[in-house]
């Protein structure tokens, strides 16, 4: 059997449309998920017991179930529960954002935990108010320290976004599978689709390593 990868080029427009959808869904979910994750992360470290308990249950649940189950749940159940129509895209973004919130909450919480208690002592000695301490000392450091893990969360989310194809959203994976079925040339098409994901995700994971080293060096005391 001979393989002809060049023929995939004929479908580049369709693949590009799919890729755009993949990137769009990923970026939207990352943006919403990070904000949601910061709130959850704060709640998880909060002194209010009920806030801590709720956040913990939420985070453990979303980290303990397959993303595809979450996606199906949102896709089939949320419209029934809320009584509103959700487009494929909206439910995809909602599901991925909820998931991203759970994983990024852990990054924020871990980052907050690595700030040494000495810093709190210094803030007291300098007479900083609790607000000034959180706003100018804790928060900037938490965000800086969380960046490497957040970025690797983003890579995970980008990969997980391929699941929206299973609920019929026309992302890169969906388009790729359609072309593969239509042309009966899965080897070429699926390999190229996998390579496209790889080409985007790989540099990002390298970036994580570089950033990790930089942040650790810059924040060493």
């Amino acid at each position: 059997m001979d393989y002809n990868f060049a023929f995939v080029l004929r479908y580049q427009d369709a693949l590009l449309v799919g890729l755009k959808m993949t990137v769009l869904v990923s970026l939207a979910s990352i943006a919403i998920g990070c904000l949601w994750g910061f709130v959850l992360g704060m709640a998880r470290g909060s002194s209010l017991r009920w806030a801590r308990a709720l956040a913990t249950v939420y985070i453990e649940f979303f980290r303990g179930t397959p993303v595809i189950v979450q996606l199906f749940w949102v896709f089939f159940c949320l419209p029934l529960l809320l009584g509103i129509e959700l487009s494929n895209m909206a439910s995809g973004i909602v599901a991925l954002s909820l998931y991203m919130g759970a994983i990024s909450a852990e990054s924020f919480r871990a980052a907050l935990k690595t700030i040494s208690p000495d810093q709190h002592n210094a803030c007291v000695a300098l007479g900083l108010s609790r607000y000034a301490e959180i706003r100018y000392v804790l928060m900037p450091q938490a965000i800086l320290r969380a960046i490497p893990t957040l970025l690797s969360n983003c890579v995970s989310l980008f990969k997980e976004s391929a699941l929206v194809s299973a609920v019929g959203m026309a992302d890169l994976m969906f388009v790729g599978q359609n072309i593969s079925n239509a042309t009966a040339r899965p080897v070429e098409v699926l390999t190229v689709v996998a390579l496209i994901y790889f080409v985007i995700a790989f540099p990002l994971t390298r970036g994580v390593t570089v950033l990790e080293r930089k942040v650790l060096k810059g924040l060493a005391v």
Binding site: M1, V155, K159, E160, S161, A162, L163, S165, A166, M173, G176, Q177, S180, P186, V187, L190, T191, V193, A194, Y197, F198, A201, F202, T205
Partner: peptide, 23 residues
Amino acid sequence: VEFFRCTPAIIQIVWFFYCVPML
């Protein structure tokens, strides 16, 4: 290592099922 870490698991599985028998 990098290839499997940097591509979606779903495409790895679909690829396996379709392509391994052919290849």
